[in-house]
Design a binder for these strands. Structure first.
Length: 876
RNA sequence: GCGGACGUGGCGAAACUGGUAGACGCAAGGGACUUAAAAUCCCUCGGCCUUGGCUGUACGGGUUCGACCCCCGUCGUCCGCACCA
């Protein structure tokens, strides 16, 4: 009988249609079964999916299909992170409206995702640029305003003075605007902020509860939040040294124990005292300006030399009234952190030491190692910041730094300056409030009205949504909302007089901070259906790239808390399980050197390999092309493989199988033509083996064998089932794939035997049972192939709706085990023995082995270590 | 600079809680089938020497009956944060 090759181009759309017709993946909120919410980070609709998407969504789909088979009511939705700059850039460059561009991109990407055969509930789909979605986001914003989780303050932005526009950080290249090339200025604008810092402590503490998150991500968030415990110390300004009536300056320190080692105060260039000093001295002014400029061009000049300038202001040491210290402006002090002022202790801090040496300030060691000698301990070029014992510190001498910290805190708390304690314990965070204002068109409008008389007012909820106007142009720089002839002008909701709309729109991170909540009831008028949100949240398994480890995940954690405070949901942590998947990488190919280097896409190349040497040949000319390093797929290096091409030539199952095989899912996977062909061979092989035997198997019912020739088949089937199940539970897709390969290899001979008619009933039934198990365990990865195989065996049910098979423990347990025998820790023999043989029986059998007897040479062994069911080691 | 992760064949990788290192795949080599090719099937595949051994998980030590795994040190790669007071 001639067996046709498996044709995914025919089979895949057929099964997708069938799943769609039967609404297999539409989720009912009222289904009483236990819930499981699996979600992959939704994509930005750039227009084409890439291999990273394929890998991300393949992983989520395996989880969704597996959990569905295990009996859960699975929610697996998809949507579009659809606001953002690229749409405006496309509008400007191609004269296409952002809306039109975005929805067209969504349509083409959706078609691509559908071709992957993902088990998504498309009925819940939305884009964040849908009015229905951002309408609810505006409702949330207003609720947050009421709870005072939103406020306005002046904040710096990157301003392009030629284009008259605000630039995002990524649009600033080497301190210049990416289009105009003009030097970017820092401008102060009044902007909207979310009070994420209200939750600093909770966001930090709750990290401990996220035990299904990668440790790495939790650590990154912990560092980002940056909690420190210290002391806020108020220093008295020596009368007459400052011009204004400022009497004191506050300093935050985590090392109050080193207070006697202080030799100067340093303040940020933006500190009020610095501004005051600048106002009366042009040299100071120039220095402050220099510091500010250095702040704009970020990491480039990070090794910048420590520089400062004396303000002339003097302060009194809080623990020694006769001690005066100078106040410097320093380029390494940041206004945004602490109080924007520090005291410098050169002996204990490298920066302070560098600074002190440069400006010839005193260096007094105050902490020395425990076994040091106070009389001879001096600081050279390296500050000592370790633990030890206090010296040169009056009443602190002899204490540990920790004891000294407490002693200083207590002393300063008891002293007063003016009417307040001179020092107070203070917890400080690095985390800053979240600035959400964007001076752009393609985003969610901030639903606020400015009235000259009534101030800043929220748009009444009945007047929502504040829709983006469609009639806008992008032929000039700046925000189209700002120059719109009518949209801005509106009556004040309070007094009715002429007022103006807010023209800022929201950061797109806001859109992605609650989409997972909206998926639980996307049809609701209110932002959430609270019962549905409480039912589905937290997301059981969230899957996405490590690049979102901090911002997106932290903002989402904040936003869920804010939604809890405003009564929209009763949970505070949105993601119970988090998995960060690796990238898809590819070799690079190029010809030419230096500026003339030309990158060649993989489709234009054929790889030849002979005698261990790989060569890349350009298809069009036969020319040899040099093979470069393996890198993230990128347009600039042209090392991209288009998922459409792969699905068209090999099918979705092959693509899904390949991106999940070989590499652990959290590591990068190398895309290679040879690898894809290997995956494709596998799908073809499964089909061939099953279809060759299907005529015979059709009439056999699936029953595992408990004895005889077929026992081994049933054993490996049920053992594989149990192992793959465990692998899927751990998201160890690559290990599941390896076991599936092993299983198929083991089934090849039995299936051929069945196909050839040489098998008895019990054998055929055992093979049928094994094949059904194979279909079930490959189905999450290659769902179309599984359906096709199942159908060819005469099954009427859909695998996508079928229960996971149950492993028969009797078949899983091994009765005889193979025990490795070591002599002095080296393997010398093997012993097959009954699983429940007791220690003495094992010892006896071991000593009877030839290899053991010759090693012992008649002597008695020193020691025999029997690790039950594992290994035996004989010490001679 | 600080913090973290990692280092296993030609390559991607397995190896349970300290218990046979290299499962599985890719690549390669040999063979069968074929007029031929593709497809498929079989064999070999860490290194060294002669069967049988020796050796081998970045490198140097240590703990242990036994170490890829634990400890100390060194080297290297990658990632995150970066003047955080």
């Amino acid at each position: 009988m001639a067996i046709e090759r498996y044709n995914p181009r025919d089979a895949e759309p057929r099964w997708q249609q069938k799943w769609n017709d039967e609404k297999v993946f539409v989720t009912d909120n009222d289904d009483p079964r236990e819930k499981y919410y699996v979600l992959e980070m939704f994509p930005y609709p750039s227009g084409r999916i890439h291999m990273g998407h394929v890998r991300n969504y393949a992983m989520g789909d395996v989880v969704a299909r597996y959990k569905r088979a295990r009996g859960y009511n699975v929610l697996h939705p998809m949507g579009w992170d659809a606001f953002g700059m690229p749409a405006e850039n496309a509008a400007r460059d191609n004269k296409v409206h952002p809306k039109e561009w975005t929805y067209q991109n969504i349509a083409s990407m959706k078609a691509q995702l559908k071709a992957m055969g993902l088990s998504l509930d498309w009925s819940r789909e939305f884009a964040t640029c849908d009015v229905e979605y951002y309408h609810r986001q505006q409702m949330l914003f207003i609720d947050m305003m009421e709870k005072e989780l939103v406020y306005r303050k002046k904040s710096k932005v990157n301003w392009d003075p030629v284009d008259n526009t605000v630039l995002a950080n990524e649009q600033v290249i080497d301190g210049r605007g990416w289009r105009s090339g003009a030097l970017v200025e820092q401008r102060e604008l009044t902007q909207w902020f979310f009070k994420i810092t209200d939750f600093s402590q909770d966001l930090l503490d709750a990290l401990d509860t996220l035990d299904h998150w990668p440790e790495k991500v939790r650590l990154m968030q912990k560092n980002w939040i940056g909690r420190s415990e210290g002391l806020s110390i108020r220093w008295e300004i020596m009368p007459g040294t400052a011009q204004s009536d400022e009497r004191e300056v506050a300093v935050y320190t985590t090392r109050p124990d080193t207070l006697f080692g202080a030799s100067f105060l340093a303040i940020a260039a933006d500190h009020p005292l610095a501004k005051e000093a600048a106002a009366r001295d042009p040299a100071v002014e120039a220095f402050c300006e220099e510091c500010r400029r250095a702040g704009t061009s970020v990491a480039a000049l990070e090794t910048a030399e420590k520089k400062g300038m004396d303000t002339g202001i003097r302060v009194r040491h809080p623990l020694d009234a006769s001690w005066e210290l100078p106040v410097y402006i320093a380029n390494f002090v940041l206004m945004e952190y602490g109080t924007g002022a520090i005291f410098g202790c050169p002996s204990g801090d490298q920066r302070d030491l560098d600074f002190a040496r440069k400006y010839d300030l005193p260096v007094v060691p105050v902490v020395m190692p425990k076994d040091g000698d106070a009389a001879s301990f001096v600081i050279g070029d390296i500050a000592y910041d370790g633990d030890g014992v206090m010296i040169n510190s009056q009443f602190l001498d002899g204490m540990t730094p920790a004891e000294a910290f407490d002693a200083v805190a207590a002393r300063l708390a008891a002293m007063t300056l003016g009417n307040a304690p001179q020092g107070e314990r203070k917890v400080n965070f690095r985390l800053r409030d979240w600035g959400i204002s964007r001076q752009r068109y393609w985003g969610c409008p901030i639903p606020v009205i400015h009235c000259d008389d009534c101030g800043v007012l929220p748009v009444p909820k009945k007047d929502l949504p504040v829709k983006l106007p469609d009639d806008v142009t992008f032929d000039q720089p700046g925000n189209p909302l700002d120059r719109h002839p009518t949209w801005r002008y509106v009556a004040c909701p309070h007094c009715g007089k002429d007022a103006r709309r807010e023209t800022d729109t929201m950061d797109t991170f806001v859109d992605s901070s609650w989409y997972f909540t909206r998926f639980t009831a996307p049809w609701e008028n209110e932002p959430t259906n609270k019962a549905a949100a409480n039912h589905w949240l937290p997301v059981d398994q969230y899957i996405g790239g490590i690049e979102h480890a901090i911002l997106h995940l932290l903002y989402s954690r904040f936003f869920t808390r804010a939604m809890q405070e405003t009564g929209h949901v009763d949970v505070k942590e949105p993601f119970k399980g988090l998995f960060t998947q690796g990238m898809v990488v590819h070799e690079t190919y190029s010809r030419g050197k230096g500026a003339a280097r030309e990158w060649i896409p993989p489709v234009d190349i054929r790889i030849e390999e002979a005698e261990g040497r790989r060569r890349a040949i350009l298809l069009s000319t036969g020319e040899e092309i040099s093979i470069g390093s393996i890198e993230k797929m990128s347009k600039s290096k042209k090392n991209v493989v288009d998922p459409d091409d792969i699905i068209a030539s090999y099918g979705a199952d092959t693509a899904r199988f390949f991106v999940l095989s070989d590499s652990p899912p959290d590591r990068d996977v190398i895309w290679s033509e040879a690898g894809v062909e290997g995956a494709h061979r596998f799908t073809q092989r499964v089909w061939r083996l099953v279809s060759e035997a299907c005529d015979v198997l059709k009439s056999a019912k699936g029953t595992p064998a408990k004895e005889g020739e077929a026992l081994a088949i049933s054993q490996i089937a049920h053992r594989t089932l149990k192992a793959v199940q465990a692998d899927y539970d751990k998201l160890a897709f690559n290990k599941a794939v390896a076991r599936i390969y092993e299983f198929v290899n083991a089934l090849a001979v039995p299936l051929a035997k069945v196909a050839g008619g040489g098998a008895d009933v019990a054998y055929r039934e055992a093979v049928r049972d094994a094949v059904e198990i194979l279909i079930a365990i490959v189905a999450p990865i290659t769902p179309h192939l599984a359906e096709e195989c199942s159908a060819t065996l005469g099954n009427a049910h859909l695998i996508a709706m079928s229960a996971w098979p149950v492993a028969d423990d009797e078949l899983v347990v091994e009765n005889d085990i193979l025990l490795p025998i070591q002599i002095n820790g080296k393997k010398r023999a093997e012993l097959t023995i009954s699983r429940d043989a007791d220690q003495s029986a094992v010892k006896e059998a071991v000593l009877a082995l030839d290899a053991v007897r010759s090693a012992l040479n008649g002597q008695a062994p020193k020691k025999i270590i029997v690790v039950p069911q594992r290994i035996v080691n004989i010490v001679v």
